[in-house]
Amino acid sequence: MKHACWGAPAIRRIGAAALVLTAVVAAPLAQAQGYAAQWLARVQQSARSLNYTGTVMVRQGARIETFRLAHLFENNQESEKLLSLDGPAREIVRSATEVRYYFPDAKVVRVEPRTIRNVFPSLSPEQTSNLAQYYEFKLVPGGRVAGRNSEMAVFEPRDGLRYGHRFWADPSTGLLLKSRLVNEKGEVIEEFAFTDVVVNAKIDKDMVKPSWTSVPADWEVKQGGPGDVNMTDTGWTVHKLPPGFVKIMEGMRTMAGKREPAVHLVFSDGLVAISVFVEPFTVTQTQIGLTQTGGLAQYSTRSDAFRVTVIGEAPPATVRQIAQSVGRNK
């Protein structure tokens, strides 16, 4: 009888051996996981903490626009100015406390409290592991971008539920020089690229100030922004979540111009995010169905007395699958 009955130390020894074995097998994968996440974190940190100025080309679907950009990092605070060079005049000025969008053609300025957080360095271990499981990561020479040699990070999706991502960065400073979103046919659907850039430039405070010292009298000032979110269990869930996505936020969000707060859930696969909004359905809300702007897909549908809207940087089928499986938490 005795030999059949394993004591606690024996079980611990087996457990320890299994643990060592798991560690040996999992080590290269863990390393690869960490590598992709580290690379992204460095590029994110550089975009925030470097001083730079240049011309940026932005392509969404068939639309191409160029902007002049100046970015200053001083006293641990970011200031930035973006000025459109073609199309309707627009100026975006970002300071530590707010973002102002100037539209001189419409004589409108939108003022938003600054809420966009520093999201990248806080990838959860689960997001980091999903990043490696659902994308193949490669770092290769990227050729010349904006007059500089670059390194290119490739995130190739391992299934059809997400887009491919290419990022070109300056190897010495880590500044992102160019990025591309690629669909399953290999077509570029969204692109961001410097055509010229000066990194570690001397940025004057004046370069990141609005062209208007005060708002002209005949302009309209609009207060806006994404509002505040109250993190709580909303009672809503996605029943058929595509593999690789994990919930990173859940709460009730009070948005500008709305009386009732909306349910807001956010899911991420480590590289992109998909948001789910649920609000009571009203007859004035007419948008139902799919819309696509560059790499951003939106699907709205009606579920009983509610309107469900899903937005994300993912193929329309993925966004639609999520929208159609949003329901009450049982």
Partner: peptide
Amino acid sequence: PAMAIQGG
């Protein structure tokens, strides 16, 4: 996250 790494 992918948006956050683009300046502006």
